[in-house]
């Protein structure tokens, strides 16, 4: 049955109009910029920019630092995404258990990393990661391990960034998963219990399938968020050492907001957009096939 147009406009209209004005128009403006040589001289006087076709995109494909940033970002995504989702889902399930004590206390504490100001918490983390005076190496020392120079070693800098990223994201996703878990009707568990399913089996055959919309959401949003990795490397390492933590958005930021090459930066943004869009689209197709 078709929904009346009036209802569609009332319910979806306001959001669409606002997104159109504040997101879509600016996006189109920057898409346009990506076909220009918009640089430092054009910011005060836009007429100093001229169209150069696909030149920015061609230059980008030949830019070794862009490829480096792309690889770094994918590295972060591949490691951080499963880690975040598995940890968040497990903790959400543990908190949501009937028999768990102090649920609210755990929830609030787990969420703390997500609400704390990134600048301040990055200072704390760089202190914790300090090779000589940091808490992490002190702890490893207790176990008889000599910890690395986390942020100063090109091999360990990205893992350090990933640690901060995951630490910040888990609490946030716990909240999402708890909301999803609350949405699962009791009778499904009751039925499974009657069939003699163990609680682990219930988790696999009731919880996970029922959570599919939430898992899908978290996966999509995590991919989008991690591919736009910026704040953590910006605060912790600035992209170094030896470009080992240079992410795509950090590179974009450098080109656009340090060198003021906004045309070039826009082309980076759109290459990233196409990648994210493709990944999301594939996920949606795959998600549908599973549900069907």
């Amino acid at each position: 049955m078709k929904t009346p147009l009036k209802a569609i406009i009332t319910f979806i209209g306001p959001s669409i109009i606002l997104l159109l004005i504040f997101m879509l128009i600016p996006i189109i403006v920057s898409l346009t910029l990506s076909f220009t040589d918009f640089n430092v001289f054009a910011i005060y006087n836009w007429s100093n920019a001229s169209f150069i076709g696909f030149q920015n995109y061609i230059n980008l494909m030949k830019d070794p630092l862009f490829w480096r940033a792309l690889l770094n970002t994918l590295y972060a995504l591949v490691v951080a995404m499963p880690l975040t989702i598995i940890l968040a889902l497990s903790f959400a399930a543990l908190i949501n258990r009937e028999a768990t004590y102090f649920k609210n206390f755990f929830k609030v504490s787990f969420y703390l990393p997500s609400i704390t100001n990134t600048v301040a918490i990055a200072i704390v983390w760089s202190w914790m990661l300090n090779p000589d005076y940091g808490l992490i190496n002190w702890f490893l020392g207790l176990l008889g391990i000599k910890g690395p120079n986390w942020l100063g070693d090109p091999a360990w800098a990205m893992p350090s960034v990933i640690m901060l990223v995951v630490w910040k994201a888990v609490g946030y996703n716990i909240i999402l998963f708890i909301a999803g878990l609350q949405n699962i009707p009791d009778y499904l568990y009751e039925a499974a219990e009657l069939d003699g399913a163990s609680r682990f089996q219930q988790f696999l055959h009731v919880t996970i399938p029922s959570l599919r919309p939430t898992i899908f959401f978290v996966t999509v949003m995590t991919i989008i968020g991690y591919l736009q990795l910026f704040e953590e490397p910006y605060m912790l390492t600035g992209g170094g050492p030896l470009d080992s933590t240079l992410s795509i958005v950090l590179y974009l930021y450098r080109q656009g907001f340090r060198f003021f090459k906004l045309g070039y930066a826009s082309s980076i943004a759109f290459v990233l957009f196409i990648m994210i869009f493709a990944l999301t689209f594939i996920q949606m197709k795959v998600g549908k096939n599973i549900e069907a």
Partner: peptide, 17 residues
């Protein structure tokens, strides 16, 4: 000279590192 920034400038100056 320490590579990658080393420890803490103040602390290292105080300890003599």
């Amino acid at each position: 000279a320490p590579l990658g920034g080393g420890g803490n400038l103040f602390q290292d100056f105080a300890t003599g590192d």
